[in-house]
C-alpha cells in the first residue's frame, strides 16, 4: 500500500511499487482523463505533473512518485490552467481529442516556466506530445493566446 498525493488529496493505493503511475491513476484512483497512448514515453498522451513538472505517467513508476504532488487533467482544471483550456476552445484545437489532456498538461507546464514562449520554446516543450489529427498549428496558436490572456490578467 502506497500513499500518493493526487490533485491535492492524499490517496492510499494498493499497487506494486513497480506499477506505472498511469495505471495507478486510471485503474486504481479511477481518473481517466490521462490517456494511454504508447507505454514507452514516446507520445505524451499520459502527461501529468509531478510537483508541477510534466512527466510521462506510463514510464513513471509508482515507487518514484514518493511525496511529490501528482496533478492530472482533472486536477489542473481548478488552477489557472483554465485560461489554457479557454484558449483551446477559442482556437477550436481538439479533433479526436485523445491526446489533448497530455497536450494541455505540457502547455500548462510550459507557461509556468515561460510566460511568453516563442515558437521555438513551444516546439521544444511540445515535441514529445504526438497528435495524429495534426492539431499542432492550433496548439501553437492556443499557447500564444493563453500566454496573452495570462499576461492581460496578471
Amino acid at each position: 500500500m502506497a500513499t500518493i498525493l493526487i490533485n491535492g488529496q492524499s490517496r492510499e493505493v494498493a499497487a506494486d511499487p513497480s506499477t506505472p503511475l498511469l495505471w495507478v491513476i486510471r485503474d486504481i484512483v479511477g481518473l481517466t482523463g490521462t490517456k494511454f497512448g504508447c507505454g514507452i514515453a514516446q507520445c505524451g498522451a499520459c502527461t501529468v505533473h509531478l510537483d508541477g513538472v510534466p512527466v510521462r505517467a506510463c514510464s513513471t513508476l509508482l515507487s518514484s512518485v514518493g511525496s511529490k504532488a501528482v496533478t492530472t487533467i482533472e486536477g489542473v482544471a481548478a488552477s489557472d490552467a483554465q485560461v489554457v483550456q479557454q484558449a483551446w476552445i477559442e482556437q477550436q484545437v481538439p479533433q479526436c481529442g485523445y491526446c489533448q489532456s497530455g497536450q494541455i498538461m505540457s502547455a500548462v507546464a510550459l507557461l509556468e516556466q515561460k510566460p511568453s514562449p516563442t515558437d521555438a520554446d513551444i516546439d521544444a516543450a511540445m515535441q514529445g506530445n504526438v497528435c495524429r489529427c495534426g492539431t499542432y498549428l492550433r496548439i501553437r496558436a492556443a499557447i500564444h493566446r493563453a500566454a496573452e490572456m495570462k499576461r492581460a490578467s496578471a
Partner: peptide, 11 residues
C-alpha cells in the same frame, strides 16, 4: 463551435 470541444479539453 465544436460540440465536443470542452469535454476534450478537460479530460
Amino acid at each position: 463551435p465544436r460540440v465536443d470541444g470542452v469535454a476534450k479539453g478537460n479530460g
